[in-house]
C-alpha cells in the first residue's frame, strides 16, 4: 500500500471526511509535497474500501463520489498502526541519478566531463538549499513547512557533502590523467 494511502487513512482516523476535504487536508498537512490529485484520492479510497480499511458513511441522496463521506474501519486503524510500527529499511540499494551520472561521465568522457557536471549540479543543489532555508526562516511558515524543509535540507546537505568530496576526488583523477 502506498504512502499516500496511509496518509489518507491517518487523516480519516481523526474523523470521517468527503474526498474533497481529504484532498485539501492532505495538501495542507504535507505542504511541500506534490499535491495529491482528486483522481488519486478517489482511486485510493476505492482500493481502501475494497480491502475493508475504510467504509462509506452517510451517503446523501444525490449520490456522486464527492457527496460520499468515508470513515476508517477498525481494520484500517490496525493497518495504520502496523505501518507506523514498521521500521523502513535504510537505503537498501545505492541508486541515485546523481551517482549514475558521475559514473557515466567518468566512463564516457573522463574526469573533465564529470567535474563540469558536478560543479553545475552543486550550484543547482545550493540554489534549492537556499530556497528551503528561506522557507525555514520565514515567520509565516507553518510547522509543517518547516519540518518538510528540514527533511529536504538534510538530504540536499548530504548530497552536497558527497558532491564536494567527489569533486575533490575527480580533480585528483583529472590531474593524474593529465600528468
Amino acid at each position: 500500500m502506498s504512502t499516500a494511502a496511509h496518509v489518507l487513512l491517518a487523516l480519516l482516523a481523526a474523523g470521517p471526511m468527503h474526498g474533497y476535504d481529504l484532498k485539501k487536508a492532505h495538501d495542507q498537512r504535507l505542504p511541500q509535497a506534490k499535491p495529491i490529485a482528486f483522481g488519486q484520492v478517489y482511486g485510493t479510497l476505492g482500493r481502501l474500501e475494497r480491502d475493508g480499511l475504510v467504509e462509506k458513511r452517510g451517503q446523501s441522496r444525490e449520490g456522486g463520489p464527492d457527496r460520499t463521506e468515508f470513515a476508517i474501519t477498525d481494520t484500517g486503524r490496525e493497518k495504520l498502526r502496523t505501518w507506523l510500527e514498521t521500521i523502513e529499511t535504510p537505503a537498501p540499494y545505492i541508486s541515485s541519478t546523481l551517482l549514475a551520472k558521475v559514473v557515466v561521465a567518468l566512463l564516457v568522457d573522463g574526469a573533465g566531463q564529470a567535474r563540469d557536471y558536478l560543479t553545475a549540479q552543486r550550484r543547482a543543489h545550493t540554489a534549492r538549499l537556499r530556497e528551503l532555508t528561506a522557507v525555514k526562516t520565514d515567520p509565516a511558515s507553518s510547522p509543517g513547512d518547516v519540518i518538510a524543509a528540514d527533511y529536504a535540507i538534510a538530504h540536499l546537505d548530504a548530497d552536497l557533502r558527497w558532491l564536494r568530496t567527489t569533486l575533490e576526488r575527480v580533480a585528483d583523477l583529472h590531474r593524474e590523467v593529465r600528468s
Binding site: 560543479t119 552543486r122 550550484r123 545550493t126 540554489a127 537556499r130 530556497e131 532555508t133 528561506a134 522557507v135 526562516t137 520565514d138 515567520p139 509565516a140
Partner: peptide, 16 residues
C-alpha cells in the same frame, strides 16, 4: 572561480 560565486543569487522566496 569555479566555486559558488556572486552568480548564486539570494533565495527568491521567503520574507527575509
Amino acid at each position: 572561480p569555479t566555486g559558488l560565486g556572486a552568480d548564486i543569487a539570494p533565495a527568491p522566496t521567503g520574507g527575509r
